[in-house]
Structures are given as C-alpha cells and as structure tokens.
C-alpha cells in the first residue's frame, strides 16, 4: 500500500492503518530499536509504542516521508528507554559507541547559557549533511541515525569496514570544524 493511503487510513481513524504500517515498516522500526536497545523484548515494546504514538499524532500531522516519521519516533523512544534501563546494566550495543564518537565532535560549553538550542543544532546539522557527498552523508546517517554497526554499513554498501571507519572519521572531523566555525558548543 502507498504511504499516502496509509496516512489516509490514520486520518480516517481506521485501525487497519496500524496493520498496514506494521506490515510495511515493522521491520525497519524493529531493526532501529534493536540496534539501540539490543533486546528483542524492549524493541518490540518500542515498536508498539511507535504505532501508538503515530496513531495519536495523525491527525493532525501528515508526514511528508512516512518511514522517516515513524523511524524517528522509534529512535527517540528507544533512546529514552535505553537511558532508563542503562542505570541497571551498563555497556553493550552500538549506542554507547556512537555517543562516544559523537561526544568528541563538539567542544564543551563554558556555561549552560552557551549551549545551543536543540532545534538550532538540528538546523546546523541538516545544513551540514546536505553539503556532504551522498555516500558520506548516507554512511554518517547509517551510523548515527540508524545506529548501524560499521560492519553492517560495510555490508550494506559493499565496502571494506576500514573504509567505513575512515569515512566516518573524516566526516566527524568535518563536522567538528563546521560546529566550531558556527560557534557551536554543547
């Protein structure tokens, strides 16, 4: 079923919207949640919460890119859940590694007031990503949006894992330079 037809089902408040969403995007959302949480049960709950959240937000929302809309919800829910559960058990999974890599990209803020608003930071990142060659942009997003391991990225794009790592390193350096140029501190 076309995405626009699925969105229409949400707007018509037909429960079939959830089934169609599950059929078409269940796998995508499940893999994102699993990459972050490394737990099948937790991933399943996050995906179910995603459908619930989507049901509550459409209407009024009408997303332009439905998979991005859904996977963004899954990602945020998974991150929140990861934060809640990590107090009990630390380590494991791709997320701690991804966060560590990203943490090195930006200088620390001198004070709370210097911290950039999240929305503005997102705009800076969006602009930055659009300046990258497609390949670098995709590799960066696979790592830091989908939280894929470098090995999975290498398989996906038929590259050597070392090339993926070096590309990520280069992009992080570029990002750091860009953030410094724009005076971004976190």
């Amino acid at each position: 079923m076309e995405d626009s037809a699925i969105i229409d089902l949400y707007w018509a408040r037909e429960e079939r919207a959830l089934q169609e969403t599950e059929t078409k995007y269940g796998g995508l959302c499940r893999s994102i949640a699993f990459n972050i949480l490394q737990s099948r049960e937790d991933s399943e709950e996050c995906v179910n919460d995603t459908w619930f959240r989507a049901w509550n937000t459409m209407p009024p929302q009408r997303p332009g890119v439905l998979p991005a809309f859904l996977s963004r919800i899954t990602r945020n829910l998974s991150l929140d859940r990861w934060k809640r559960t990590r107090a009990d058990k630390r380590g494991g999974g791709q997320l701690p590694l991804a966060l560590e890599e990203l943490g090195d990209c930006v200088p620390a803020a001198g004070s709370v007031e210097e911290a950039l608003a999240l929305e503005e930071l997102t705009r800076v990142l969006d602009r930055f990503l659009r300046t990258l060659p497609e390949r670098e942009c995709c590799i960066f997003l696979r790592r830091y949006w989908y939280v894929d391991s470098t090995r999975d990225i290498a398989r996906r794009y038929e590259m050597a894992e070392g090339s993926v790592k070096s590309t990520l390193y280069r992009v992080r350096q570029k990002l750091r330079a860009q953030l410094e140029k724009e005076g971004v501190v976190l």
Partner: peptide, 15 residues
C-alpha cells in the same frame, strides 16, 4: 554532549 548531538541528528530532514 554525544547524546545531545545524537538527539539533534534525530531531527534532520526526512528526505
């Protein structure tokens, strides 16, 4: 900082 950047990346364009 990493988490903040991670959350910010979450908001980039759907395209």
């Amino acid at each position: 900082r990493g988490e903040r950047l991670f959350r910010a990346i979450g908001g980039v364009g759907g395209d």
